[in-house]
Each structure stands twice: as C-alpha cells, then as structure tokens.
Design a protein around this nucleic acid. Structure first.
Lengths: 167, 167
DNA sequence: ACAAACTTTCAATAATTATTGAAAGTTTAA
DNA sequence: TTAAACTTTCAATAATTATTGAAAGTTTGT
C-alpha cells in the first residue's frame, strides 16, 4: 500500500467510525487529515483534499475548535488562516472524553437522578422504575467519574492505569 | 413528577442518548421500556406504549436480540411472543461493550494496523502518517483490551475496579 | 475609505437513515 | 388441512441530518 492510498484509507475509516458514534463524517475526516499532516492546512487545502465545500469546511472546523481539538495558526506573511489538530493521542482522547461527558453524559445523569427520585407510591411499577433508573444512575455516574479522573490527570496516567488493569 | 411522566422522560432521554451515540431511537426506547417494565411485554404492548409501527417494533426487537440484550419469553397459554431485556446494569453494560468492540472497534484497529505498517519511504509525510496512525493504533488497542477485560470478568469486577481508580 | 482576500452564515437541496403498512410468511389449534 | 393469530419482510415514504453555494460579513493593506 502506497502513501496516498494509506492516507485515504485512514481518513475514510476515521470518517465512518465517527458516523457510528454520532460524529459527522466531514468533521471526523477533517480532523484525521490534520492529524497526519506535517504542516498546518488552509481552508483551501482541506476543501481540495477532501473534496468538500467551503461552507462545510468552515462549519466543521468551527465545531472542531469548539471541541478544543483544532486550533487556528497564524502564519506570518499569510492572509489565510491555517489549522492544526492536537497531535498527541493522549491529549486528544482526554479532550474528546471531556467534551462528550459535558455535553452528553451529564444531562443524562441529571435526568436519571430526577427520575429515580420520584415519590415511591409503593406500587410495583413505581418501585421497579426507581430501582432500575437508580442502578443506571449509579453506573453512569461511576463511569463518568472515571472518565473525569482520566481527564484531570497528568499526561501518562491513562496508559499507566490501563496497563495496571490489563496485566 | 408522577410515575407516567417519569417513565416517559426516562424512555425519551434514553432514546436521544442512543441517537447521540449512533443507536437508533426506537431501538433505545424499546430497550428502555423493557428495562423498567415489571413483566415481559408483547409486540402489541410495545407498539401501543411507544406509538410505533409493527414493522419498526419487529425489526428493532430483532436487532436488540442480535445484540444479546433482549430475549424472547415463552409464556404458557399465550400465543403471542413476549420480550424482556437484561435487567442487570452490569451485565447490560458488558454486553453492549462487547458488541460495540466486536462490530466497530476491531475493524478500525485492523485498518490502523494496516495503515501504520506501510513501507517507510523516508519522506516526512510518510513518517508522519506511520507515526500518528501507530500512536492511534496503540491507544485504541489498549482501550479495547481494557473493554474486553471488563467483559470477561465476573459480575462485580467493573464496579470494584472503577472504585479503585476513583478513590 | 476602498477593495481585495478571505471567512461565515443560512436557505435550499441532497444524502442518509428511520419508519410505515400491507403482503407474504409462519405457527398453532382444532 | 385449514384458518386464525401472529411475525417478518421490504418497497414506499417520511424524518432527520449533512452539504452546498452564493450572499453577507470581516479583516487587512494601501
């Protein structure tokens, strides 16, 4: 497999992985492209390489910046804006975990807490609803705590912890 | 908040959480409904409660069974089929983790391995592609190993491990 | 202040994904 | 063996989500 083919394969695989986990294809592909690029890319570069429109590129770059995994680079003497992504996989993982926790897991935990706190009227169905949502609430909260722990540790904590768990 | 409202809130929240993580709404809602139900439900029951069509119900129940988190119950004297979901959150989490690993993570690991193994022609861009996909490969493989570890342990291992990590 | 070089916005459109419902298929009881 | 009771399948349709492209907005250099 040659460079170009390998690169395209990587980008499109990353794109479809994104789709499977609720992240849009263009967004995932832009990040993948930046991730293996040796230098910052302009909007033109990205549009060209991925064959997507200016609007699409602009919107998805913005989202990636909102997620904190892509940053604008000012290149002296250039009028265009250039973009790079976080190159360190650990940091990338932490950032994504952090954002998904904040945006998606927290609101669900909130609802689970509310629902599991309704007044127990002693009927079977109410007891079951409370019991089951409480169990889910605990599980979700634990998983999320772990995720947050990962997020707030220094660089290599994740790898070390995983290693301890695995061996 | 009363029982009915709480139940509906739980089901629809679970449904939209599903959507955010690439699982379709009806599938997530059916699972949620079964999860808080005190007894097995028939297709009619599910259609009625969630206001979805027979075809939709049938297809999504099938998927849930393929995922191994819903099972058919035979109720003596009843002609209809009845369904239940795994009621234990630990087991549910393990089953979902197992399936998502098998279906989605493994194929990506395979591609990352392929791409990171291309011939190094000593150009900067090839070196960067190899380096970055290799890093991603390692991270993904570690995370997946942990997931698999969780899957193959006895019941309470997950909670215990998480607890150890958190404290 | 102007205009060239750029980026953003957003209504229109396309692509994808989910849902319906009726026909075909299956199972069961008599 | 028949037919009622039920489930599955799948082409048609609806709903959702992503993408385009051109107009509006912004920034920069002169």
């Amino acid at each position: 497999m040659e460079y170009q083919e390998a690169k395209e394969k990587f980008i499109s695989t990353w794109g479809s992985l994104g789709t499977m986990w609720g992240i849009n294809k263009a967004m995932a592909m832009i990040q993948a492209l930046l991730f293996v690029s040796t230098k910052p890319l302009s909007m033109e570069d990205i549009m060209e390489e991925l064959q997507i429109s200016r609007g699409n590129t602009s919107m998805n770059l913005r989202q990636l910046m909102d997620w904190g995994i892509v940053t604008k680079e000012i290149i002296p003497g250039e009028r265009k804006e250039f973009f790079t992504t976080e190159k360190d996989v650990q940091e990338l993982a932490r950032q994504i975990a952090k954002e998904r926790s904040r945006r998606e897991i927290q609101p669900v935990i909130k609802v689970l807490k509310e629902v599991s706190s309704i007044k127990d009227d002693k009927t079977d169905k109410t007891k079951e609803l409370i019991k089951q949502t409480k169990a889910l609430h605990e599980l979700t909260e634990n998983a999320d705590k772990m995720l947050n722990k990962l997020i707030n540790q220094e660089q290599n904590w994740l790898t070390k912890s995983l290693f301890k768990l695995i061996k």
